[in-house]
Amino acid sequence: MPLDAFTRLPPALAADCVDGLAAGIDTVAVRAAPTHRFLRYGWYAAALQAYGGAARTLTVAREGEMVAALPVVSTGPAALGLVGVPGCYWPFRSFPVAEDAGVEVAEALLGRLARSARALRVGPVYDGDPGLELLKAAAQARGWAVLDRFVAHSWLLDIAAKRAEGPWPRNSTLRKNRFHEKHLGSHGALDWRFVSGADWDEAAFDALAQVEQKSWIAARTDGSDAKFTGAGHGGFWRAAAADPVIAQMLWAALLRIDGVPAAFSFDVNAGALKYAIANSYDPAFAKHSPGKLLYYRNLVRAAEDGIGAVDWGAGDGGYKQVIGAEQGPAIRDWLFVRPGLPALGARMLRGVWRRSGKPEGTRTVAEAISPDADSDL
């Protein structure tokens, strides 16, 4: 019988759910898109350590090889049966799926999820996220309700495109930066350096926290949104850096003046994409633009290291557009609600869910508090 007479059977899928974080999360992460390979066991473990919660992990294996891992924690009133993806809001909350995973993998995930939860929250996450898109397609095919609410617009700087157009940064920009750097040096010796990999220790994180404690975020807010202080999210990033693979992706540009931290830019380098997580500076030096000087150094180094684009996330687009960023994908919060009465009820409340977000085009809370927070850049 000729080979083409045989029908190729679809690969066998096995869905499972284990208490805690599955060891196989890292197996999936290394097979995920390069932009999502930081979504490792250590990432979720850091979130549980910093923010609490008891995790379960839904997994899907294809012919014995794990291709999806969805960690979840219970959230909201227990009666709702709602679970969400743990993690940090920066750069987003999602889960790893192998690059070659298909919709059938997400269907298996949802089928297993329906046995223990009524609804799943994913996000905030970017439009086009690989795991999100598979879940949306599977949910729509299986009768789940799919609800979204807008969070913010993102901003994207295409370094490769800028460099293809001609010299970048422009010579005029570099001349201005040298002028400011000369005058900044009148305050003391300037020490520019980068931190990554094994360099991450308590002293490195403390230096970032020291800058935040002098910045607008400490002066104008309660400090809970600071990324590196004890009152903010410092516990998460310190715990995440315990994973050497994640630590290698964590990157900071740091300026010290006479040995004292004065400005920083903190990123996650994921393949050819840099996620700009946070930047801050000591306002005592604002006249000479330390943040701008530092970040241009950071961008030049990024281009030299093969970074092709910078994802600046949400926030004030003013200074980002000056550097050359353009509006990128929207960031949204998603609910996937189990078929039957839960899905029916969710569809009736779709408008309530959307109104709990932000109308598209509105400014974020950070922008409203401090429109000039990052204008130094």
Rank of each mutant, 00 (worst) to 15 (best):
Gly64Phe: 02
Ala61Asp: 02
Phe95Tyr: 13
Arg93Leu: 12
Ala68Ser: 02
Tyr89Gln: 07
Glu99Pro: 08
Glu99Trp: 03
Ala101Met: 10
Leu82Lys: 03
Glu63Tyr: 02
Ala98Tyr: 10
Ala101Ser: 14
Arg56Cys: 06
Glu65Ala: 08
Cys88Lys: 04
Tyr51Met: 11
Arg62Cys: 00
Gly64Leu: 03
Trp90Lys: 00
Ala79Thr: 05
Ala61Val: 02
Pro71His: 13
Leu48Gly: 07
Gly64Asp: 06
Ala79Lys: 01
Gly52Arg: 12
Glu65Ser: 05
Gly87Asn: 06
Ala50Pro: 11
Val73Cys: 15
Ala61Lys: 03
Thr75Met: 02
Ser74Arg: 14
Arg62Gly: 02
Gly81Tyr: 11
Asp100Tyr: 02
Thr57Leu: 04
Pro77Lys: 04
Pro71Ser: 15
Glu65Arg: 14
Val60Cys: 02
Ala47Thr: 09
Leu82Glu: 01
Ala47Lys: 01
Gly76Gln: 07
Leu48Val: 05
Ala50Val: 04
Val83Met: 02
Gly64Ser: 13
Gly53Gln: 05
Gly81Phe: 07
Ala45Glu: 12
Leu70Val: 05
Thr57Ala: 03
Tyr89Lys: 00
Leu48Tyr: 07
Leu70Phe: 04
Pro96Gln: 08
Gly87Tyr: 10
Leu80Phe: 12
Pro96Trp: 12
Tyr89Ser: 14
Cys88Glu: 11
Leu82Tyr: 00
Ala78Pro: 00
Pro91Met: 00
Ser94Val: 10
Leu58Tyr: 11
Glu63Thr: 06
Val85Gly: 14
Ala98Asp: 11
Glu65Lys: 12
Thr57Asn: 00
Ala79His: 07
Tyr44Gly: 03
Val67Thr: 08
Pro96Phe: 11
Pro71Cys: 12
Glu65Leu: 00
Pro96Thr: 09
Pro91Leu: 01
Ala47Ser: 00
Phe92Ala: 11
Ala45Thr: 09
Gly81Met: 11
Val72Arg: 02
Trp90Asn: 15
Val97Cys: 04
Arg62Pro: 04
Ala54Arg: 08
Ala55Tyr: 07
Asp100Met: 01
Glu99Asp: 15
Leu58Phe: 14
Ala45Leu: 05
Tyr89His: 14
Ala61Thr: 07
Leu82Thr: 04
Cys88Pro: 01
Arg62Phe: 00
Pro71Met: 12
Gln49Gly: 11
Leu48Asp: 04
Met66Asn: 02
Ala46Cys: 03
Arg62Ile: 01
Ser74Lys: 11
